[in-house]
Every structure is written in C-alpha cells, then in structure tokens.
Nucleic acid binder design. Structure first.
Lengths: 371, 371
DNA sequence: AAGTCAATTGTGACCGGTCTCATAAACGTC
DNA sequence: GACGTTTATGAGACCGGTCACAATTGACTT
C-alpha cells in the first residue's frame, strides 16, 4: 500500500549559528565595563541607579540574553534543573513534569529531562551524574523503585529535591522531598466503602519498595480500625493491563464486593475484568481509583476516585529545591496539594442488601454534581 | 484535619559543587596535551592507536566526563535538543517526548523541555529563542496551532525538526519534519464503518490550522468516494470533555449511527454522551477513536481505534534532526511509523438493519484477538 | 642525501560569562 | 584637611572545552 509514504522535508537551512550579542557588546555600547553589565544582570546592589538604567536600556535595545552555558561554566548561580523519571506518559508523571516545567519557566530556569527506563542498578550513579548539567540541579520523580534508586544515587554535590510516596511516620527522607499525603484519603475512601455496607474492601496496589504505600497504609488502617481482617495482596502494578489481570483473579470470589485500586488505570482494567466476568459495577462490586485522570469521569460508569494534583506537586517540589540553592531572586513557596475523594458512579452498596445501613460516615468527600 | 501535613525534608547538604576532572587533568595523567585528549573524545581520525588507548584508559580511570556547557560554549558540535510542546500530559505528546528522550539518550545527547502554554503569539519568537540552549537544536511537536506557530518562529540559525500533522498533498514543509500518515488509516476506518452498513459517518475532529487534518481528509475522501454528502463539522477539540459536549449535540439526531473521533479522549467523551442519551454503543451508534491510548482496550465497550506509534515518531524526528546537523557518530535512520486500524467493540452494523450487507471491504485492519 | 608530504602532536587564543582584586570616587568623622 | 570607610567601577584571570595553526616525526620521492 503506497499511500503511506512520507515526503521528505526540505533540507536543513544553513544553520549559521551566528553569534548572539554578548556581555562585552553591551558594555561597549553602554560605555561601561563588561563587569558592570554582569553586575546589572545579576542584580548586584553596588551599581548606581543611573548606570543600571543605562545598561538595562542597552540590553533591551540590543536584545541581549545571557548565555546559559557560559554562566554555568563560569560557576554562576544554578540556572537549570534536570528532571529524572521512569516514564513520561503515565498521567501522574506527565502532570508532575508539566508542573515543574511551568515553575521553572516562571523564573527563567532551563529544564532538562531524562528517563530511567532500562538503566541497570549498577549504572545508575553514572547515569544520574551524567544526566544533570554541570552546576545544575536535580528533581527526581521517585514514585517507583527505579526513581527511588536514582534518588539514592544522587551525589550530595548536586542540589536535589524529589517527589516521593509519603514515607512511613517517623521516617524523614534524606533529601528534600515533597509528597501528597494520600494516607488520609485512602483511609477515607475505604471507610466510605465500609460505610456503604461492604463487609470488606480489597486492594490492588501500585508497586512499593518500602513494603507499603500510603494508599495501602490508609486502606489497612481503615480496615483494622473497623476490626476487619486485611485481605491478601498482590505485588502491585501500574497499568490497566495489570489491573485487568489482577482483578480477574478476584472475580471468582463472591465475597469481593469492593475494590480500592492503586490508580485509575488499574481501576479501569479492573472494571473491564468485572464486566467480562459478568459482575456489574457498582451493583455487584464497587470500585475506587486513585489520581482522577482527565477521562475518569467520562468512562461508563464514571469512576469514583481520589483526586491528586500532580502539577501542583511538581511546582511545590521545584520550590523546595530552590530553598536549598543560592538562586537569585525570590522563591515562591508552595505547599504540596492534598488528595480528595471524588464520588461518582462506580461505588454503591453491596448486592443482596435491601435494608440500607446508615448513610456513609465519610463526609468530607465531594460528590460530583459539577458538569 | 491535621492528618494532612507534610514533614519537612532534611536540609540540603553542603552541595560543595566540587570540580570534576577536566580534560587537562586527563592530559597530565596520560602524558599528552589537552588537545590530544579532546581529539580522542571526539573520535578525531588523526590520533595514533597507542595514544588513543592510553588516553581512553586514563579517562575511565579518572572518571572523566566532558562538560557539556564548556563544549557548547567553545562552539563544539551540537549536543543537546530542546523539545517544545504545548502539553506534557496528553498521550500523543507524552509518548512522542519519551521517544525523543530515548533516542537522545542512545547517543548521549542532552534533552531539554519547554512548554508553550500561555505564550502570546507576539512573544513566541523570543520564547523559542530563549528555550533552546546556545549551540543546541530544536524539536517542535507541532500537532496543534501553538506548536505550528512555534515552528514558524524557529530562527534558521537553530537546527530544527518537527513532528507535524501530515501536510496536504503538494505542500512541502519548510522545516525538516516527520509525520504519521493517518490519511489512509482515517479513510480505511471510514470505509470500514460504511462497509458495516452505515449510511454516513460523522466526524468529531481535533483542531486544525490548515483548515483540515489528515484524519479529517481521509474521512472526507472516503465519504466523497462513496458518493455521500459530508456532514457539517464542529471546530475541534482535544479533550474527553470536548468530545462529550460535541457528541451531546449529535445525540438528538437519529441519523447519526457512526462517529469517527479525532482521538481516543474525544471518543471516550462521545461514548459517555451516547450512554447518557440512552444510545447504546455499538448497537445504536458505532464509535472509532484515534491513537490507541493504553487504556483504550479496557474501557467498556473496548474502543475500536486507529493505533499510532508516537514514540517511534519521536525517534524518527530526532533522526531527521541529526541529518541536518554535524553530529559526531553515526546517525540511526528511522522511518516514521504508520497508523493501523484496530477493531474492537465499539463498532458494529447500524440499528434496524436485519439483512446484513456484505462483509466489510477494509481488509488490512487488525482484529483484536490478542490478550 | 635532500625535499615533499601526510600523520601525529603541541601551543595558545577564544567562547561568554563569573570571580577576585585593585583602583577611584564619595562620604563621614575628628 | 587628613584619614578611614563605604560605594562604584574596572582589569584580568579563569571555568573546560574547542579551534586554528605551528611543530615534530617518519615514510616516500627524486
């Protein structure tokens, strides 16, 4: 089928790579020394008002832009961040990256990006080292084991901040880090299901490397607090495919009437598995996801889930990074966001139960009337 | 609720920013001149085998890593790419970014990233200029108007390549570019629906700025070839929300029995709209998406869609960029991927039609028996 | 044996910023 | 009015690579 060929694009133009205007050009035009120009662009206090204005005028007249490479080389202030993550296309990662990007853009930082996929543990230190620009800073998205390892490998030379899964109480991360406290939200989601009358709640976790995740811990806590036994767990995964397979194993067990999923992809896979097994959602089994991906409210039935604001988390992480760095200019502090239960259509009372129990105990959750 | 506070991370360590080993350190240790070391790391042909090996040995013994900033400053070969895109979290973009990243990693390029969101048209040239590192190259994801504008603004000084929507026949893009030829796939998808017996096929497009998109054109061509009138079009959107709203307008029209959507998010929104309007998919109306996002096969009913391999497209784009750049080392050529119809569960014959027409004419499509 | 040429290696300037330190001017203070 | 102190400015080295060019070496001509 020859309809599928691509015409070549035009050839690359000359790409003359001509020189932009430098600090010395500005100095000459303004009648000052190059050092004075340097002082102006770095907001050094010891420049007279008149000189500063003159230089600033010349800078904008000539369209001068400081050369980031030269600045890094000369030992100037940190001007760029490299983001390390295992994956670009998973929603939480992508949104977090975008948050960091927006934050860097606001204060004129450069942003680099590097993927962790396929790097052997023993190569990780070198890979991390090599990923970050000289005199640059580092942000690690450490939601998963590979990210956590990369974070471990970050040399103390490099200013580093990370987005992590919430550490167990008492554990203080070695690096500056931010996280969304999902424990309370996971607990709340579990209690919500229990409040609907479910005898127990199963969990399909995302992978963990501390033996637990806040989502898992919140679920666990709610169950224990209700005096219920904690169902066995699988190893954890990220994808809809994994969720599908994990849930398929659960479909045969009629005592499974409520499943809290580690993320929305897993939830969608689980819904599929239930559907194929002839178990209706939410009539036979309730499902709750995690993240609130943009399409969560459009799937049928619309997914009840725990909303997380990863973009804001990314911004908070960048702000945290800046705290430990001698960056020029003001640091915008930003608190990490909180997780929030959004009730939609995949949750309801368990089957074979005509006499309704009391209304759900959880109260803070948000019901979706919007749209 | 005080359960939701985040403990501060530990303070940033000293971050001594100590000096790594330089080219002159290596030279001294190996008993050669710094220039010879430079030749070795750049694979210059005029170095004797013995010297090269000695230097290489010293390099790995000392753990030397060339300083990217210094190299860029000194006018060395292009070593880094900046990717410009409107969005990180939309699937096609995220996957394309990941493809570029993997390709850059393979040959040791740095990769930067910049978002286009919220940049006014008049600021675009400056923003593009500022985004790319000095002596760096540029990749623009120009699937949408903002991206296309950014591509227009790329100065010819900067080596540039782009991922674009396929240009209309005869139009040759001004910059080196790659694209997935979706025309044939869109036409095939439309013909497939027609072959199932639908009287016409409606289309919910993604935004276009050339007045058309290949997806739209393929749909158009199939309709015209079948001698059918072409239904009116809406302006186009990207999100499930837009798809939901656009499709809601269609639900009242009983002649709408098949909808080709510009992407999977739109399709999911459209499915929701149909569901709420009481129109069953695929019994009352058939729906086809575009992209094959990872969860497409897990939604209920599983989405028939046109698969696109954006990661490979990203790699192809990087390869294309390298063609026009004096990069050291070999260029891995890579052909842009093709689009492919994946038939799942959202398509079927139109309602009120007992006597089946002949089997679908489209033959190349792939039916999903996998899993 | 002297001359030519290519292959290999070394020398020093340079990229565009920053740093350190020296100098000049303005400002009290006694 | 001489002196110390602060403030404003300039001169030059330097970061770690590259580039252009010169110098050395050895093989090959003639």
């Amino acid at each position: 089928m020859t309809g599928l060929i691509n015409v070549e694009g035009s050839e690359n133009a000359a790409c003359d790579r001509s020189q932009a205007v430098s600090i010395r050009d500005v100095a000459r035009a303004a009648g000052v020394s190059h050092q004075t120009v340097s002082r102006v662009i770095n907001d050094s206090p010891n420049v007279s008002e008149g000189t500063r204005e003159a230089v600033l005028a010349t800078i904008s007249a000539l369209g001068f832009r400081p050369n980031r490479a030269a600045r890094a080389l000369a030992g100037g202030p940190v001007q760029s961040v490299t983001v390390l993550a295992t994956n670009t296309s998973r929603y939480g990662y992508a949104a977090a990256i975008q948050g960091v990007e927006e934050a860097t853009q606001e204060i004129g930082f450069g942003m680099g990006f590097r993927t962790l996929e396929g790097i052997a543990s023993e190569d990780m230190p070198a890979a991390v080292e090599y990923a970050v620009e000289p005199a640059g800073a580092l942000i690690v998205i450490a939601f998963d084991p590979a990210g956590a390892l990369a974070l471990e490998c970050a040399p103390s030379r490099i200013p580093t901040a990370a987005m992590i899964q919430a550490p167990p109480p008492g554990v203080v991360p070695r690096q500056p880090a931010v996280w969304i406290d999902e424990f309370a939200a996971a607990k709340q989601a579990t209690e919500y299901l229990l409040g609907l009358g479910h005898r127990t709640v199963h969990h399909l976790p995302i992978p963990s490397w501390w033996g637990t995740t806040p989502r898992l811990a919140g679920w666990n806590a709610a169950l224990q607090q209700a005096g219920l036994p904690v169902p066995a767990l699988l190893a954890g995964g990220w994808t809809a495919e994994w969720g599908y397979e994990a849930a398929s194993a659960l479909t045969r067990d009629r005592s499974v009437t409520a499943v809290l999923c580690g993320n929305d992809d897993i939830a969608i896979g689980a819904m599929r598995a239930m559907h194929e097994a002839g178990r209706a959602v939410p009539d036979d089994v309730s499902i709750i996801g995690f993240d609130d991906v943009p399409h969560a409210r459009f799937v049928c039935p619309a997914l009840t889930t725990v909303r997380q604001d990863f973009a804001t988390l990314g911004k908070a992480c960048f702000a945290k990074l800046l705290e430990g760095v001698s960056a020029r200019g003001k640091v915008i502090k930003r608190a990490p966001p909180q997780a929030e239960l959004i009730v939609r259509e995949t949750t309801g009372p368990p089957p074979h139960q005509t006499g309704h129990r009391a209304a759900p105990t959880a109260r803070a959750h948000r019901s979706e009337i919007d749209r």
